[in-house]
Design a binder for these strands. Structure first.
Length: 568
RNA sequence: CGGGGUGUAGCGCAGCCUGGUAGCGCAACUGCUUUGGGAGCAGUGGGUCGGGAGUUCGAAUCUCUCCACCCCGACCA
């Protein structure tokens, strides 16, 4: 490709709408253009990257034996009513009707459609297992789309759905998909981690997420420093480093704490360790009342764990302040587990604290030297906190480290949730009709592009891994339009590269060298060759890798050999 | 959904308080010079000032209203 014929449009200044680095660079490098909130066009340069991602996914999925198909984005309401999700799905599902007033939606995912295809075509266990996939546009009407294509409303996803006659068969395909995903992310050339995960609203039991590691990632993932344990922080079981409670050493006292509402205020003012403070969170119960959750001062509540507790409203809802005042008689900020007359759950770690400080359930008063068992009943202990760096690994090996990641892949064992609802059945070897067992496997194709940038950028712009780069090699001829020597050499090199199948961008624009260099660095071309009169006189060309500190001068006679080495 | 903010040339912004010819930088176009790190000079084009209504002799500016977009929040216990 010649730069003069390519739609290469770069910005020096960062558009204000972009907050995170990948979004900024995607706009500056001209990969995408925004059309509406959360809706983007993929420009020629961006599309080249997107296709790289798609092709790697497609090749590896095909290799695994999965079959590609393509389902519609517009789907009839009937299917969604059948699965029950027409009502379950909130406003995220974009609904509309056609000219005949038939209800339709834009597909946020395709379980219903694939189940419908399945039940029409597949009648026998002999046709199983089978794994269908597509690379297709999804629409989810997010409350707040942000971060460019990282969380957009319209996006491209690879979604696969497998069907089985039993759990063993599902497990085999699930394991195969796990391996296939690992192969895919290896080929992307990105640092990633597979973790145990919550299956969320999709349903089902076992699930794993694949995260591209990046400090700016929205998810925290916990992994052991000594084993292969890795889980989303939402999922990781919290184990207290402490295993028993100390003996009470002091008498219970009530102290006045006017104006001290937060744990930080309290610990700071009284000069005590936040770990000695307990915080009491009040959430709605499932019968319009309240439930108290008690945590150590330095710990964070894990909402997913909490909403699974008996009697707690799901989804978890922090209680309204007025309601707390009405039922408990005092304000938040002075609450504590002692003498609290509502169902109370205490986090394991909090139950190990002795001589603790907590709210006195009287405004502007706290209790000090409080103790479980002595000053109130022994607590009902549960795991409701997020793990922290340094906690013991749940598998008993090593301790946990925390990294941030961007979720780009997720695989689930769905079981029979959809097949029962949609009557997707087959005849088994006994001639009996059984609901098929399903798995589903997603990769956020457009998100992979953003995640790759989020992980691979510097102050000059993007640096693509070779596998995702829109072009592999940039040829920058200096004085191309004045020097016949430079022009001829550059043209010849360009033709040579094309014949070798190298994806090459010849910068034949009549611009100054600095413009070429900064553009090629911004768009992230991994390799660059500079040709100049000065170099040619010395019978040399210059090479620089995108991440190299220094360029190197190489004899022209070695050019062919050099290209062989670089691109084979 | 709640709160905050912003809409002026393709991009980044000033002008608004105190109403009176719509500006600056980048980008684009033309010409000359320059040619190893986002060049210099000279010139050119490009705007229903987000939409509508109102006040006024006169509105980018004041008032009302609608729309769009951005950010924050849903953990003070």
């Amino acid at each position: 490709m010649k730069a003069s014929c390519f739609h290469l449009i770069t910005l020096k200044e960062t558009p204000v709408e972009a907050e995170i680095i990948s979004h900024q660079l995607m706009l500056r490098a001209g990969l995408i253009r925004r059309l509406a909130s959360g809706i983007y066009s993929w420009m020629p340069l961006g599309l080249r990257v997107l296709r790289k991602v798609e092709n790697i996914v497609r090749e590896e999925m095909n290799k695994s034996g999965a079959l590609e198909l393509l389902m519609p984005s517009v789907q009839p309401a009937e299917l969604w009513q059948e699965s029950g999700r027409w009502d379950q799905f909130g406003p995220e599902l974009l609904r509309f009707h056609d000219r005949h007033q038939r209800d339709c939606c834009l597909g946020p995912t395709h379980e219903e459609v694939i189940a419908d295809i399945f039940r029409r075509d597949i009648k026998s266990y002999k046709q199983l297992p089978v794994n269908f996939y597509q690379i297709q546009t999804k629409f989810r009407d997010e409350i707040r789309p942000r971060f460019g294509v990282m969380r957009s409303r319209e996006f491209i996803m690879k979604d696969a759905y497998s069907f089985h006659v039993n759990q063993e068969s599902l497990q085999q395909t699930y394991d195969l998909m796990y391996q296939t995903y690992s192969n895919i992310f290896d080929r992307f050339g990105l640092a990633y981690r597979a973790v145990n995960a919550d299956s969320g609203s999709i349903g089902g039991s076992t699930s794993n997420e694949f995260h591209v590691l990046a400090d700016s990632g929205e998810d925290a993932i916990a992994f052991s420093d000594q084993s292969d344990y890795a889980a989303n922080v939402e999922m990781a079981a919290a184990i207290s480093p402490q295993s028993e409670r100390g003996q009470p050493e002091a008498e219970l006292e009530t102290i006045d704490t006017p104006g001290l509402h937060t744990i930080e205020d309290l610990a700071g003012k009284l000069d005590i360790d936040v770990k000695k403070c307990l915080k009491t969170l009040i959430v709605d119960s499932d019968d319009d009342g309240l439930v108290a959750l008690v945590l150590r001062g330095d710990h964070e509540l894990n909402p997913l764990k909490a909403e699974r507790l008996p009697g707690v409203a799901s989804p978890l809802q922090m209680a309204d302040r007025e309601k707390i005042k009405t039922i408990l008689g005092n304000d938040i900020g002075s609450l504590g587990p002692i003498g609290l007359d509502i169902p109370t759950f205490v986090d394991n770690s909090a139950s190990f604290v002795s001589d603790f400080i907590c709210g006195a359930n009287v405004n502007d008063q706290h209790l000090i030297n409080a103790n479980w068992g002595r000053d109130c009943d022994e607590p009902e202990t549960v795991d409701i906190r997020n793990v922290q760096e340094g906690d013991p690994s749940p598998d008993g090996q090593g301790s946990l480290k925390i990294l941030r990641g961007i979720e780009v892949g997720h695989i689930f064992q769905l079981g029979q949730k959809y097949s029962v609802a949609m009557q997707a059945t087959v005849l088994d070897e006994n001639g009996k009709s059984v609901a098929t067992t399903m798995g589903c496997y997603g990769i956020g194709v457009t998100r992979v592009v953003a995640a790759a940038i989020e992980q691979n950028n510097d102050d000059r712009g993007i640096y693509w891994p070779d596998s995702l780069a829109p072009f592999h090699l940039a040829i920058c001829p200096l004085n191309y339009h004045k020097s016949d020597d430079v022009k001829n050499t550059a043209d010849q090199l360009y033709q040579d590269c094309l014949q070798r199948g190298i994806e090459v961008l010849l910068d034949d624009r009549p611009v100054r060298p600095g413009v070429m260099f900064s553009d090629m660095e911004l768009i992230g071309v991994p390799h660059r060759i500079v040709l100049s009169d000065r170099g040619l006189k010395a019978e040399q060309f210059e090479y620089k890798g995108r991440r190299d500190e220094e360029s190197q001068d190489i004899n022209l006679t070695e050019l062919s050999e050099f290209l062989d080495k670089l691109f084979n």
